[in-house]
Each structure stands twice: as C-alpha cells, then as structure tokens.
C-alpha cells in the first residue's frame, strides 16, 4: 500500500512542483518511466499472487530503469536510438499488458 501511496504522492508532487526535465535526462526519461511502470504492474500482480517482496521489487524497478536507460544510450551511440527506443517500448508494453491481464484474471476471474 505504501508504494501505491508513494506513487500517488509523487504524481501530486509533480503536479504541484511542475519540475523541469533536465536536458541530459530528456532522452532517457520516457523509457525509464515505462520500464518502472512495468515493474510496478509486476509488483501489483505479485502481491495479488501472494509473492510480493520488497527487495525484489526495488531491485527490479532499479534494474529496469537502468537497463532501459542503457539501451537508449547505446542506441543513441550506435545511431539507432529511435528504433531501439521503439523496440524497448514495444517489449515493455507487451509485459505491461500481460501483467495487467494476470491482475485482471486474479481479481475478476476473467
């Protein structure tokens, strides 16, 4: 529950403070946000299955963000940043969909 509270507080804080995205973070933030969202949905699903673990959640969210940023960085260095970003977004989107589908099955049985 507390992580969910944290998310809500973060959104509210963002709306209130209206932070500027620093320039160096510009290319990485969208992918990092999607990677973290993927981890969050995975965490929700794990807690519904009774196997949620703080440590795993923290590590997975950090590693997701790190790897996403790394891929974008590497893609930019190789000159295929746009394509790689698209690929990462597609993969993460697939994972989010499957996690949401699992959550739906657990809660609604369908």
């Amino acid at each position: 529950m507390i992580p969910v509270l944290g998310l809500v507080v973060g959104v509210v804080l963002g709306l209130m403070l209206q932070p500027e995205v620093p320039g160096w973070l510009e290319p990485y933030l969208p992918i990092a946000v999607i990677a973290a969202l993927d981890a969050v949905f995975g965490g929700v699903r794990a807690s519904l299955e009774g196997i949620f673990n703080d440590r795993v959640f923290v590590i997975s969210i950090l590693s997701n963000v790190l790897v996403a940023g790394l891929i974008v960085f590497l893609g930019n260095q190789l000159g295929v940043g746009a394509q790689l970003s698209t690929g990462v977004v597609v993969v993460l989107g697939l994972r989010i969909f499957s996690n949401v589908a699992a959550i739906r099955r657990h809660l609604l049985g369908a």
């Binding site: 507080v9 804080l13 932070p19």
Partner: peptide, 21 residues
C-alpha cells in the same frame, strides 16, 4: 518496513518523473 519505504520512495520518484515527462 525499510523495503516498503524504499519501494514507496521509488514509486514516488516514478510518479514525479511521469508527470514531469
């Protein structure tokens, strides 16, 4: 617990980043 607090911190940052983006 320390773990949930850390997770909450991360999700807080996530929310912040989401809105900022």
């Amino acid at each position: 617990s320390r773990g949930t607090l850390l997770a909450a911190l991360l999700t807080l940052v996530l929310g912040l980043a989401l809105v900022a983006q």
